[in-house]
Design a protein around this nucleic acid. Structure first.
Lengths: 185, 185
DNA sequence: GCCTAGCAACCAACTGGTTAGTTGATTTCC
DNA sequence: GGAAATCAACTAACCAGTTGGTTGCTAGGC
């Protein structure tokens, strides 16, 4: 077991940061808590990531990259895509929280290049799908993408006032897939 | 013009608090900024609302009450209801932000009684609608309510990586209403 | 194989500024 | 005259970021 390893320390900081930021947001996160969870000194964190804000950027960018990598897109079966998005955030609710914090706390932050590029690619695919008559044309491509995203994550982003009545994951997933099917019909 | 008026001061504090909390969340909000915007001293704020957290509660509760009061529910025309929800948050995006902050920063906060009651009433109405065959039964009532909410607010809760392609409000509204119609078909 | 110089990794303790919350006095109105 | 409304100034704690120094790893000479 190495006692010194820059890469490993960096990775541990990023992991701890993701956890802390997902739980408390940028303003609510405590740098000292991140350092503690990462098992290192605050100074390391500043050496590797600059400052609190840049650390959030690093954590969020990594999180998004992992999401885009793991959840592929498929114009030919959008309900299945919605199902996968549902599965992903069911397994990693903290990723959705991170994304929401980003939206709330960086209201006029420059959109991340990586996401813009992927979104553009998906929009292009949707347009091609529409020309091929695989995707209906009642909604614009942006609307469709955004609607599907909203439907796939609607449970996770729900306020907690429904209590007991919320169905189990299997039923929720089925509802997501069915809703997207209906949107496309 | 009165120089002293407890009710008016209280109202101004609440207004300023809503603005500040909507913009920056609980952790990011600054009590001194709220006092400044409200045109009074910090001490007033503590005299009237106890502390920062209770001030947020007051602002959020008032905001929700106003929303529930303004946007009525109508089982017989759910697409129109979705349209009204869309209109409301288009006109008051800060209310949606406030609600999102609440969800993120109070992950295990006790659900607000007022919302729980209204939701239960709406669920009951949906159930009656289902029995009357006015509302389809493919989704459970909770699912429907949650789906409609998600669809009606999907633009506002979108991350900002779509840029220029986002359609104008009229088209967005039409998309919301149409999507809910399709969900119900 | 052993020693050591130099550098990268690491940290305890500190700093300067900020922040939620308080206090004790002052003003205004009835 | 007294109660309610208001505030300037204060406090104690907190927190992002820094500093100055220590420790472990390794390359290269012997």
């Amino acid at each position: 077991m190495q006692q010194r390893n820059a890469d490993r320390t960096k990775a541990r900081i990023l992991e701890a940061a993701t956890e802390e930021f997902a739980a408390r947001g940028i303003a609510g996160a405590r740098v000292s808590r991140i350092a503690e969870v990462a098992g290192c000194n605050k100074a390391m964190l500043y050496a590797y990531f600059g400052n609190k804000d840049e650390l959030f950027d690093a954590a969020f960018t990594a999180s998004v990259a992992q999401y885009l990598d793991e959840v592929g897109f498929d114009v030919d079966d959008l309900p299945a895509y919605a199902g996968r998005v549902f599965d992903y955030f069911e397994a990693h609710p903290e990723r959705l929280r991170l994304s929401t914090w980003y939206r709330l706390e960086r209201p006029d932050g420059q959109p991340l290049e990586a996401i813009v590029a992927v979104n553009q690619a998906r929009l292009d695919e949707l347009h091609r799908g529409m020309r091929r008559r695989v995707v209906p044309r009642q909604f614009t491509a942006v609307t469709l993408l955004s609607l599907i995203q909203a439907i796939a994550t609607h449970w996770t982003s729900m306020n907690p006032e429904y209590g007991v009545d919320v169905p189990n994951p299997i039923i929720r997933r089925r509802a997501v897939v069915m809703a997207v099917q209906k949107i496309l019909s």
